[in-house]
Amino acid sequence: MRSFIEAHGLVKKYGKVVALDGFDLSIDEGTVVGLLGPNGAGKTTVVSILSTLLVPDAGSASVGGIDVLQSPKEVRRRIGLSGQFAAVDEYLTGFENLDMIGRLYHLGKEPSRSRARELLAQFDLADAADRPVKTYSGGMRRRLDLAGALVAAPPILFLDEPTTGLDPRSRIQLWSVIRELVSHGSTLLLTTQYLEEADQLADDIIVIDHGKEIAHGTSDELKSQVGGERIEVSIRHDASIRDAVQSLTQHASGTIHVDERTRSLVVPILGGAATLTAALRSLDADGIGLNDVGLRRPTLDDVFLALTGHTSGDTDQADAERQEA
């Protein structure tokens, strides 16, 4: 089957800085793909090329089977883009913004108006519809921007860091809006530097760093690359640490890591909650008191650390050093 969104060998340089260094992409119709990477990894460049805003130095791309470089206008009819910085006009009202976008998609006067009203209601902005966007909160602007991407009900959506800079409540709100959207079968490419966001929303995750794909898979596949689950136990008394290790060895799938100072044990396991329950029973049977216990699955942060050797936050520093060099 032919991919719905495809890119081959994309290269983009800004002066000496290499934003994309041979990037490939393949997305099936109706799936949500998360492009995950730190600041400066090249995420926005990928979205800009696919949404016809930017011409790559090398490589090719197609969206919905249409070549991005040869027929940009045809591509634009089929996509909706919501960028990192809310692309709405501050001095227009929410309604005027969406109405304008509808007219520029050539939907016609009446359809543009009714679509604008419909989206404002859907995005919980009906009350603010006739207020200038200037008076909107950050979360409201993002919702309006996202609504802007949906005016023509495009089959393909690009969301570039849709929740960057939002407070946690607005972020969770926006996630539920995005989930609702893709449940109708849109194909979505989402960029994010929030590992949790990719985990929450995407079927497939592509990890990008320094303009290259460094890993690709489902959230679970990526997590299994850095090792499986583990139980973390904090023992109440120093005296029972040795007993605890003995008691837990039968449940461990690898070496138990002991930190005497904090009286904590990290036990690699298989079998998730069932193994945790069994382990707790053994500890209880042996009369070992606990301060705390938890089942920990690796986060995408762990994935990132394992894949790149630095956490997602380190790259800014690394980039700064590269640019100075």
Binding site: L53, G83, F85, A87, V88, I101, L104, Y105
Partner: peptide
Amino acid sequence: QKGIINRFRSLPM
């Protein structure tokens, strides 16, 4: 300088 220009450029206008 505003994000709106990217919106315009991504539209089939």
